[in-house]
Amino acid sequence: MKQNLIGALCALAVMGGAFAQAPKKPSAKPVAKAAAAPAAEVKDAATLEFEKFRAEMEDSNPAELFEAKGQEQWNSRRGPKNVSLAESCALGQGVGKVEGAYVKMPRYFADADAVMDAERRIVWCMVEKQGFKFDDIASKPFANETFTPDITNLVTYVAGHSRNMKIAVPLNDPKVRDAYEVGKEIAAYRAGPYDFSCNTCHGADGKRIRMQNLPNLSTPKGAMSGVQGWPGYRMTGGVMLTHQWRMGDCFRQQRFPQPKYASDAVAYLLTYMIGNANGQVYKGPGIKR
């Protein structure tokens, strides 16, 4: 049953997905009126289609398949050291505890002396506790049409155990506050051939690139829409993608080189963004256009 839905999602992805990169032609009918009134709530056919689909999907979220895989991997003895994450990995709530951990990261971890988002922390555990090689994980960190890395399943599993909980990044910890401030400056840093920064596209309310709404990451509401639904099952290509991936793809659109996987730069940017969403309810891994 779920498999069928995923098949349908993949098929829809062909219609729905669009990057700022690839101009898409909305089908003429539903948007004919839009020309006269270019209001923020104007929606193209693909968006409407997607929203209808997401409503139908509410009961069988494809992210749950990845959560289930992640759970199995979290609990199994794996890696050169043959240890499970459940018996070795602390996400800030005690060894092996995943309940509520996702919404309280990024946080500072003394054992690593670093501020870490959930994905970075799990990678750290896989390397330090299970003995996997960082370079092996970092060489293929994100899913594509034919491959989903273990780390993606694991992050989705952990995120699923913060469903319906409030975002609570510990910004009163000086180290986390510091990461937040540096992240804020990273978001404002303009460079490259087009002089873009994150704020070029995400610094004001109500902006769009083509028909895609751009959340204003400096506001609580905008930051939350940058957090909600991640990790997310992306209909474009039918793959499960993480917050680290989203940051990388926006740097791509910014015409920057690629941020290193699980680096300070991405952790600080996430601290800024997720920190701005503090107090709002996270609904768990979701579906993305």
Binding site: V182, A191, G192, R255, F256, P257, Q258, P259, K260, A265
Partner: peptide, 29 residues
């Protein structure tokens, strides 16, 4: 502010890798 900016620049300099046509020279202001 300047302090955080200086550190942001240092972090950016160390935490990116070239890919395709996007070289590290693009990080310089």
């Amino acid at each position: 502010d300047g302090d955080h900016r200086a550190r942001a620049i240092a972090v950016i300099k160390k935490d990116f890798q070239p890919r395709g046509q996007a070289g590290l020279d693009r990080l310089a202001e």
